[in-house]
Design a protein around this nucleic acid. Structure first.
Lengths: 366, 366
DNA sequence: CTGTTAGCGCGTTCAC
DNA sequence: GTGAACGCGCTAACAG
């Protein structure tokens, strides 16, 4: 056995097979495309033998060139670091597998310029469609895609001015579900923490639904006069900017400390505010948890409850309540949508909103 | 603005551009390939204009067909669920980007059959090389690759009988580093917990190095007669089989409980064994942590120390000591190796072993 | 049932 | 400098 990896020998082509089988290329092509009814059993056997002998495998590139479709689709990912993305990817892989598609995965790593370049690259490979988990930037970046270009399906978030199918979480319902859970469990000082959301529709929707739910609750409380209205705050945590993160966290710290003081003053049975943090997604939740742990030590959960949209594996470990997204299904459905478009479906742009599942853990039960 | 995504209009070809620019295809091709010195400035300008007007983008497929190389490489992943994999992927993406390669990501999801099919699919797309984070099965699965087939680079683990470059963690050094750390911190009942390792070289090496380090320590202790030899155990945790997992964890529980009883009997100052768990990778560590937490509650770390190879994001949060792999670099180097092979480098198969970094956290400091 | 022919979009001689 | 012609591996008419 040699220890030197060898150079690739030339692969057999359809012509080689035809010669080896003593026939023409057409018959081979037919065999490859499963048109068995048009081949004599005898010829078929010869072809099979020749293919096996030469270890022949059809060249998808040439195939694609000829028939104008190569079964390639692009998958543009904003951030692989987010477990959400990886989970969606699983669904995408599975669906592609089932539908005979091959996904080209591109990771923009939160860089707009990367996103642009990858998109261009994908069109260059003539992918038949694209699934986009966009960074949420301007529509012009996605020019080659959607409306006038190749079919596209958006995942998790919309892109302004881009007409395309979308599949993702039912953000309104999810944020309301979480907020209600916190209110029902007696938290009356709730901080919705979210990354900058001007550009990202899903974050916008979550934040808006949170405020809406708080307002609705205040309305009910006011009418029935049962208790003081709970307070809701939105805190922006720009994970891309360490300085901003520091400032935001400092604001949070003050609120938490204030609540702690109030609690002491009121005594164990007092009516002090109970603080809860509602993280808009897993990366935010992780950042919050790390900060609280660094500041308050192992017992940080006694200071503030944490609820997160997304269900990272460490949530179970730390007892954090979450709202699980149907990530696998999101990925799967996205591919199905795209496949339909590729096959020529012409309906108006569709939205597929899937429900989240509340997973209650110790963090929000006191 | 229409709300109906439109079908793809035919894309411009090189012929269209030639006609639009009033010239032949050859000149366009030369322009695309940067042979500017052979084009009159005037023609060049016309070509540029035509390309812009038609929004022309060369077809990589046709290109690849003609020149016999398409700049595609395959990336075969055993398990995206493992954060290690995702991190390696980041390095791969970056290197591909830098080298003008396009990675086709394939996720085998721990299924051997998937691995085989994807490999076949990749050759069908005529990828110029493959990076393989194999499931660690028989070499025959990887027949089309390595030695006689297309260039391949192995990541993290070797495959029996497959001659190819490899890049991964220096497993011997890492396992020894971890073991020594535990011994130095007074743990004398150490359980190395690992998934079935007959098929996976990296797990084998880690386990062997662990036992070796324990033996070496026993030798030193014996010679100097300072203290009783520490005990080392290897526990196999087959994450794919819930029943086996239960049994293995039960064994662990007995050991932990025994140590606790001994501790009580000996009193706070006694010489009872200190139990430490050395997880061979992050999935194992997570499983262990979840189990311990379920069994002993939030204070599970008082029962046993946990040290893991791999540094998942929850390690910092829970204070678990880890040995961080240089994952990004592993991915990057793998692509570099592959690129060299693609360019024709013919040296004997190389191994690139990168060092792990010990990150000490509260878990192993008592 | 089977083989021949003509491109798919592009790169590459090789003449002009 | 420039363009016509050929072929990459394959499929799709079109004949036989």
């Amino acid at each position: 056995m040699s220890t030197t990896p060898q150079a690739t020998p030339r692969r057999a082509t359809i012509t080689d097979v035809a010669r080896e089988a003593g026939t023409g290329k057409t018959s081979i092509s037919r065999y490859l495309n499963g048109e068995m009814s048009v081949l004599s059993p005898e010829l078929r056997a010869r072809i099979e033998a020749a293919i096996a002998r030469l270890d022949y495998q059809p060249n998808q590139m040439a195939r694609g060139l000829k028939r104008g479709r190569n079964r390639l689709i692009g998958m543009l990912l904003a951030d692989l670091t987010n477990p959400y993305t990886v989970e969606v990817l699983q669904g995408v892989e599975a669906a592609c597998h089932a539908l005979g598609l091959m996904p080209l995965i591109c990771h923009a790593a939160n860089e707009v310029e990367m996103e642009r370049r990858y998109l261009q690259l994908l069109t260059t490979y003539r992918v038949e469609g694209v699934i986009v988990n966009a960074l949420g930037v301007r529509e012009e970046t996605l020019r080659p895609v959607g409306g006038g270009g190749i079919p596209a399906v958006l995942v998790d978030r919309l892109v302004d001015g881009l007409v395309a199918d979308m599949v993702g979480l039912d953000n309104r319902a999810a944020a309301e579900l979480g907020t209600r859970h916190l209110l029902d469990n007696g938290f009356d000082d709730i901080w919705f923490v979210v990354q900058p959301f001007e550009q990202v529709s899903s974050r916008q929707l979550r934040e808006a639904a949170f405020r809406e739910a708080m307002r609705a609750h205040a309305g009910r409380a006011g009418t029935r006069g049962e208790k003081a209205a709970a307070r809701g705050h939105t805190l922006v945590l720009n994970l891309a900017d360490a300085g901003e993160v520091e400032r935001s966290l400092a604001e949070l710290d003050r609120a938490i400390d204030a609540a702690a003081h109030a609690r002491e003053a009121a005594g164990a049975t007092g009516k002090a505010a109970r603080v809860a943090l509602f993280a808009a997604n897993a990366p935010v939740a992780l950042r919050l948890a790390l900060h609280l742990k660094a500041r308050y030590g192992a017992d940080w959960q006694a200071r503030a409850a944490l609820l997160s949209i997304d269900d990272p594996d460490w949530a179970e470990l730390t007892g954090v309540t979450t709202i699980r997204q149907p990530t696998y299904e999101i990925g799967y459905r996205a591919v199905e949508f795209l496949h339909e478009r590729i096959e020529g479906v012409q309906t108006t742009a569709r939205d597929c909103l899937l429900p989240g599942e509340l997973i209650v853990r110790a963090s929000t039960l006191r």
